[in-house]
């Protein structure tokens, strides 16, 4: 997206809104990516499916954060806050998955699952 490059977080009083076109462009891209993710989601690509879906979702989310939420113009502190919250979400995931991937498979709940709960006293 070349045309954002001309947008600089210039002095406060200067930016009186962007061209509306930019918002519509982002919107169009978001719809395009939605269509892409639906199409790739229905293809059978094996393990790649989830990564493609997450990749597209991340791209969409990045577009929303950068342009709809104006992260491009936000001060450093705000960017840092948001990025840090994402980083710690990932820390939570990694910590738990470090456990799941290396746990004895026999101790995983999926080893002997039941959908019917036994009667409790």
């Amino acid at each position: 997206m070349a045309h954002e490059a001309t947008e600089t977080p210039a002095s406060k009083d200067e930016h009186h809104g962007h061209g509306v076109g930019r918002y519509f462009l982002v919107w169009g891209l978001l719809l395009l990516f939605t269509a892409t993710t639906v199409i790739t989601g229905r293809m059978d690509l094996g393990a790649a499916n989830i990564f493609i879906a997450l990749f597209i979702a991340t791209v969409k989310a990045t577009l929303v954060v950068l342009f709809f939420m104006h992260m491009t113009e936000a001060p450093g502190a705000n960017r840092l806050v948001f990025v840090v919250s994402l980083v710690f979400s990932i820390v939570l995931m990694i910590g738990v998955f470090g456990d799941l991937w290396t746990r004895n498979p026999m101790t995983l709940p999926s080893a002997a699952p039941t959908t019917e709960a036994p009667e409790r006293p």
Binding site: F88, V91, G95, G98, D99, L100, W101, T102, R103, N104, T107
Partner: peptide
């Protein structure tokens, strides 16, 4: 402090790898 929580799970059935890492 955010990377240390697993040391509460040493005897909870957490994997040995996680035990060591935490």
């Amino acid at each position: 402090g955010f990377f240390a929580w697993g040391h509460h799970l040493f005897v909870s059935g957490q994997s040995a790898f996680n035990d060591g890492a935490f």
